[in-house]
């Protein structure tokens, strides 16, 4: 019979607080992501030809409206933090050596931060007319 070991060193108060907020974050961001991602999939992958409609012009059309910029920006932040925190839980469950666990967790958060910064810059500084050979077909660039 498998017996779960008695925890010998309970978490510090600071760490317990972090875990509690992490636990709450997974639930609240999860509900928000359900709405954001289902909406994203319905608009981009189901309606009007689904995947066939996706192109630079499609993205430029969507991001002409701040509503979709905010939608996609929120999705980026919430999903990356949700996913990274989930991966951290898995790393903590399966890694046995503290050095490996620390290294993997640092790598996860570095990647998460880099992609959030990159994605946020892409959404906020988006320029539909960046390539004139393509954008001449877009009315906003004329």
């Amino acid at each position: 019979m498998v017996v779960i070991e008695t925890p010998r060193s309970p978490r510090s108060r600071k760490s317990a607080k972090f875990e509690r907020y992490g636990w709450l974050y997974m639930r609240f961001s999860g509900v928000a992501l359900l709405v954001l991602i289902f909406g994203h999939l319905i608009i981009n992958l189901v309606m009007n030809g689904g995947i066939t409609q996706i192109s630079f012009a499609f993205v430029a059309g969507k991001w002409a409206d701040p509503f979709w910029k905010i939608w996609d920006g929120l999705m980026l932040w919430l999903a990356l933090i949700h996913g990274t925190n989930g991966m951290r839980t898995i790393v903590n469950d399966y890694s046995e050596r503290p050095m490996i666990r620390k290294t993997l967790n640092v790598a996860l958060w570095v990647v998460c931060a880099a992609l959030i910064i990159l994605g946020t810059l892409v959404v906020t500084t988006f320029d539909p007319c960046v390539d004139s050979s393509v954008s001449h077909t877009l009315s906003v660039c004329k």
Binding site: S55, L80, G83, G86, L115, L121, V130, S135
Partner: peptide, 30 residues
């Protein structure tokens, strides 16, 4: 499913970033 979605998310953030740099390359990846 969570791990699978996480790795897709990493790729998807990078491919979407192409819209800021090169519309042609974005369409190629898409």
């Amino acid at each position: 499913t969570g791990v699978a979605i996480f790795f897709f998310l990493l790729v998807h953030t990078l491919d979407t970033a192409l819209v800021r740099m090169s519309p042609k390359d974005y369409d190629l990846v898409i």
